[in-house]
């Protein structure tokens, strides 16, 4: 049994039907992990395109990379896969599971919802702009696709370039009627969206101007951060997180609340608040990311200021 005193291991599930681009996303993730030690569980090694120079060691069903990432084959047994991830030493920073094309991602995510040493971070479902509409009507697999859409915290439309603007837009509006609360991205997905912001938000230097606002990633994304000296009650925080305005892809924060300090994450529609006994700094800190021009910064500022002053 591994060390239960570690913070829970965040899990991202990458779901989507065959051909929706899961392997492409994982290849990108492994090639540019940005210093995070990610464990990726895949169905099939054969399709991974890992740069030979990046491979540090290769075992039966495990490939270790020089950037700290590890890649394992699931082998059809989720119990074994999760047990292995939790027993890995050192424990990875993030666990990513590539669901099979017909997997219902909730069945995988439920392990992380149940297991105290895991934390469900995100289910992202990839949607093939060329084929998803036809597949969703297929009598054999249509129900599976709909389930993959419904359980997603974020939806990512892939192959949008191939499909063309019109078809991709049509798909996006169809998806938004099916899943009105789920943010929909197109084309690429940045690592910070897939795995969450890497670091905790910094405390603001100037308490009179607690907001910070910047554009990054070649201006594709926009970032907003906030800090306040007092931490809110956890239930009040939960209410705010459950009613966030649209346009936020990722939000992360810490609050030294009573009865215990917590860490909180939202990933699209998924919310989680977990105890964070290690947090010693005072107050509340938050960072949020959204698409440039789409992040509701004023609304965020208003809600978190109200929350902070109610503390």
């Amino acid at each position: 049994m591994s060390d239960a005193t570690l913070p829970p291991l965040p899990l991202t599930v990458i779901a989507g039907y065959l051909g929706s681009g899961k392997t492409t996303l994982i290849n990108k993730l492994l090639a540019d992990a940005g210093g995070r030690r990610i464990m990726v569980l895949v169905n099939d090694f054969g399709e991974l395109a890992i740069d030979a120079e990046l491979i540090a060691a290769r075992g039966g069903d495990t490939i270790s990379l020089s950037n700290g990432c590890v890649c394992c084959a699931i082998g059809g047994d989720l119990f074994q896969a999760f047990a292995k991830a939790l027993d890995a030493s050192p424990r990875p920073d993030h666990l990513v599971i590539e669901a099979s094309g017909v997997a219902e991602p909730d069945r995988i995510a439920n392990f992380a919802r149940a297991e105290p040493e895991l934390r469900l971070d995100l289910i992202v479902t990839l949607v093939d702009a060329l084929n998803a509409r036809t597949q969703a009507d297929d009598p054999l697999i249509g129900r599976t696709l709909h389930q993959q859409f419904q359980s997603a915290g974020l939806l990512l439309i892939t192959k949008d370039q191939l499909a063309g603007q019109e078809q991709a837009t049509g798909l996006a509006s169809w998806l938004s009627t099916l899943c009105p609360e789920t943010p929909i991205l197109r084309g690429e997905m940045d690592l910070e969206i897939l795995l969450g912001p890497e670091t905790n938000p910094p405390p603001s230097v100037d308490q009179k101007h607690p907001h910070d606002h910047d554009h990054s990633h070649e201006d594709m994304y926009e970032r907003w951060s906030f800090s306040a000296p007092l931490a809110p009650d956890v239930e009040a925080l939960r209410v705010v997180l459950e009613n966030l305005p649209t346009g936020i892809l990722r939000l992360k924060g810490v609050a030294n609340s009573t009865p215990e300090p917590v860490e909180f994450h939202t990933a699209g529609r998924h919310i989680n608040i977990t105890p964070a006994p290690g947090v010693t700094t005072h107050g509340l800190r938050v960072v949020a990311i959204g698409l440039a021009g789409n992040l509701p910064t004023d609304e965020l500022a208003a809600r978190f200021e109200t929350l902070a002053t109610s503390a």
Partner: peptide, 8 residues
Amino acid sequence: IWNIAPEQ
């Protein structure tokens, strides 16, 4: 559920 996609 499917453990394998029909086309697969």
